[in-house]
Design a protein around this nucleic acid. Structure first.
Lengths: 189, 189
DNA sequence: GTCTATACAGTGATAGAC
DNA sequence: GTCTATCACTGTATAGAC
C-alpha cells in the first residue's frame, strides 16, 4: 500500500473506517495512524474532516454503482438484471461484512448533514431508482406511469428494508427471502 | 416540568435529545443543561451515559408500542389494524418531525452496541413482526406457515423501507405510496 | 510536502463542600 | 441529594522546523 501517494492512502483508509466504524466514531488520529502519515499531511490535502466525509460518499457511490454495473453486465436487461440488483447486495453480505447501506448509515448518524453530503445520498437513491425503472420498462414496455413509479418505489423499499433487517439480524436471510418475494412479484408482470 | 423529579427530567430530556440529534452528538453537558440539573446529580441516578442509552431504548420501545396499541385500539383486527400500523407511522411523520425509526438509527450509529441495547432493538423488531403476523392470521385463518413468515417479513421491509425513504427525502410521500401498495397486496388475500 | 509539537475546546466522569 | 470545581482524556485543527 506504500506505493500509493499519501492522499490515496488517506482516502482509502478513511473510506474503510468510516464505513466500518461510522463517521463520528472514527477520529482523525486513527486515520493518520492506519494510513501511516502525519496529521499535518492530512490537513494539507483536506481542509477538514467534513471534506473527507464528502470524498468518502462520492467515492463509495461511484464504487457501488460501478460494482453493480459489472455484476449485472452479462445479464439480460429486464427481469434478470432486476434480480441481479438483489443478488449483488446478497453477494456483498456474504463475502464482506455488510454494515448496511453506507448512505443510509450516514443520513441516520448525522441528522444535520451538509449540502454536498445530502446530494450524494440523494444521488445514490436516484441511481437505484433509475436502475430499477429501466429494468421494469424492459419487462413491461407499456407500463402506466403511475404504476411504474409505484412499483419502483416498492422494490426500492424492499431492497433497502431487506438490507436493513439483514444488518440488524446479522443474517443474509432477510435478503434471500426478499429475493424470492421479488421474483414472485415480477413474475406476474 | 419542574414539578417532575430530577430523574424524570433527565430521562425525558435525554430521550428527546438522543432521538433528535443522535446519541453520540448529544453530550452529557447538554442533557444536564436542558434538564436543569447538575452533572453530579445525573451520575447519582445513572452510572454512565451508556446506562442512559439503555433507559432511552427501553422507554422509547414501550412508548412506541403503547402508542400503536392506542392508535389501533378501536380498529377491527385484521386488515384494518394492519393498515393502522402504517397510518400510525404516517401520523407521526405528519405531526412530529420524524427522524426515522429510533432503533434502526441506534443500530446504524453504534456498530458496537452493548448487549442490553441490542436486545431492545431486537425486541422492537419482534414486536412489529408479532403485530403484523397476528393481523395476517385474522385476515387469512389458514395461512401456510412459510407464506405467513414470508408475508410478514415483506410487510416489515416495506414498513421500515418506507420510513427510511420518508426520512431521507423529508417527505410523507413514500409512506403514503407504501400504504396504497400494502392495501392492494392484502386485498388479494 | 512531510514531520513534531502544540493549541484549545469539548468529552465523560469524580471529589468534596454544602 | 444537589451543587461547584476539577479531573484525565480525546477531539479537530495549526504553527513552525526540517
Amino acid at each position: 500500500m506504500k506505493e500509493q501517494g499519501a492522499k490515496e492512502r488517506i482516502i482509502s483508509t478513511a473510506c474503510d473506517l468510516f464505513y466500518k466504524q461510522g463517521y463520528q466514531a472514527t477520529g482523525i488520529n486513527q486515520i493518520i495512524e492506519e494510513a501511516g502519515i502525519a496529521k499535518a499531511s492530512l490537513y494539507q490535502h483536506f481542509p477538514s474532516k467534513e471534506a473527507l466525509l464528502n470524498e468518502y460518499l462520492l467515492i463509495t457511490r461511484l464504487n457501488n454503482y460501478e460494482h453493480l454495473l459489472q455484476f449485472t453486465a452479462k445479464m439480460h436487461p429486464g427481469k434478470q438484471k432486476l434480480m441481479g440488483l438483489f443478488e449483488c447486495r446478497l453477494e456483498r453480505m456474504e463475502t464482506s461484512n455488510f454494515k448496511g447501506c453506507a448512505f443510509i448509515r450516514i443520513a441516520y448518524e448525522l441528522p444535520g448533514l451538509n449540502q454536498e453530503a445530502t446530494a450524494q445520498v440523494h444521488a445514490h437513491t436516484q441511481g437505484l431508482k433509475t436502475f430499477i425503472e429501466e429494468q421494469l420498462l424492459v419487462i413491461k414496455h407499456s407500463f402506466p406511469k403511475g404504476e411504474l413509479r409505484e412499483m419502483t418505489d416498492m422494490l426500492l423499499n424492499l431492497y433497502e428494508g431487506a438490507g436493513l433487517q439483514g444488518y440488524i439480524q446479522r443474517s443474509v436471510k432477510p435478503m434471500e427471502d426478499t429475493k424470492k418475494v421479488v421474483r414472485k412479484l415480477i413474475a406476474t408482470l
